[in-house]
């Protein structure tokens, strides 16, 4: 069974005239790494809010259609119930850390669930070690660098041991190396712990290589949904104007001039490897 399944999901914010997402029908399988992208304002964040019940429980408004997450009907289960299964990490690390020490922040969700102290301690330490910030556990989060803060945010969601993690542009404020490390960490959570990942990101150059599925939205609708190589090479993707990775564009350019590589690269490593093969023949 799919871990997330929506059927004709349509939502309008309270007081808004227009729907923000419209007729979304998608299925996400357990263990997938899904990249969600599309022009600004197309409804990515809105869709993410549906995954853990912020919509419709926190934001009211009008929700139509069906949505199930880990077998639970989102409309019928409160957010704190869903929070055990779906973790959300937001763009701005500053506004998702409330405590005055890192470990207290990571413990926050578990405390809310009323988990015994001994187990909280174990799970907090585990989450801190998995995200490589164990040494920072007693520091106040606001004194950390952006990258470290975003790691704390990830750890605090991880401690709740969710099956699904949704990350909404988690690295926009970070320098390229910091961003790359976070993406690698997320990839590791997916590969090693089997956590299903939904990552919202504009910069496909940095992230396309990790995904085994890309969903592109435009104007509240899902326009493309499928394998990264097929999607990024499609005419439609180019027309919507998403940031197709440079190496994929290089591939398309060469293809157009008659140099056929027969393999759509998503990263510089893949492109270099392919070119080397061709040149060495």
């Amino acid at each position: 069974m799919a871990i997330i399944e929506t059927e004709k999901l349509t939502y309008t914010y309270p007081g808004a005239e227009k729907t923000s997402i419209e007729n979304i029908s998608i299925k996400i399988e357990e263990g997938e790494f899904v990249l969600l992208t599309g022009p600004s304002g197309c409804g990515k964040t809105t869709l993410c809010r549906c995954f853990n019940g912020l919509i419709p429980h926190f934001y009211e408004g009008k929700l139509e259609g069906k949505i199930q997450v880990v077998g639970l009907d989102v409309v019928k289960h409160p957010i704190h119930e869903l929070a055990k299964h779906v973790g959300l990490v937001f763009q701005n690390p500053e506004n998702q850390l409330f405590a005055l020490s890192v470990e207290k922040d990571v413990a926050f969700g578990l405390e809310n669930l009323g988990i015994p102290r001994k187990e909280i301690r174990q799970r907090v330490d585990w989450a801190l070690k998995t995200t490589d910030i164990y040494h920072l556990r007693e520091r106040p989060p606001y004194e950390l660098s952006g990258g470290q803060q975003q790691r704390v945010a990830i750890a605090s969601v991880l401690a709740m041991q969710p099956e699904v993690m949704v990350l909404d542009e988690p690295t926009s404020f970070l320098d390229p190396l910091g961003a790359k490390r976070i993406f690698e960490d997320i990839h590791k959570l997916n590969k090693e712990l089997g956590i299903t990942i939904i990552l919202v990101e504009h910069r496909l150059d940095l992230t396309a290589k990790y995904a085994n599925r890309i969903i592109i939205m435009d104007n509240g609708k899902v326009i493309l949904n499928g394998k990264p190589r097929e999607i990024l090479d499609s005419e439609k993707a180019r027309l919507i104007g998403i940031g197709i990775p440079k190496v994929t564009r290089l591939y398309q350019f060469l293809n157009g001039k008659g140099m056929r590589l027969n393999y759509v690269p998503l990263s510089s490593e893949e492109m270099a490897k392919k070119l080397k093969e061709v040149f060495k023949q």
Binding site: P176, L177, K246, V247, L250, S267, S268, M271, A272, L275
Partner: peptide
């Protein structure tokens, strides 16, 4: 803490 752009990384290889 900067990583070269993708095209540059291809050519470095």
């Amino acid at each position: 803490a900067i990583i070269p752009p993708e095209i540059s990384r291809v050519f470095l290889e």
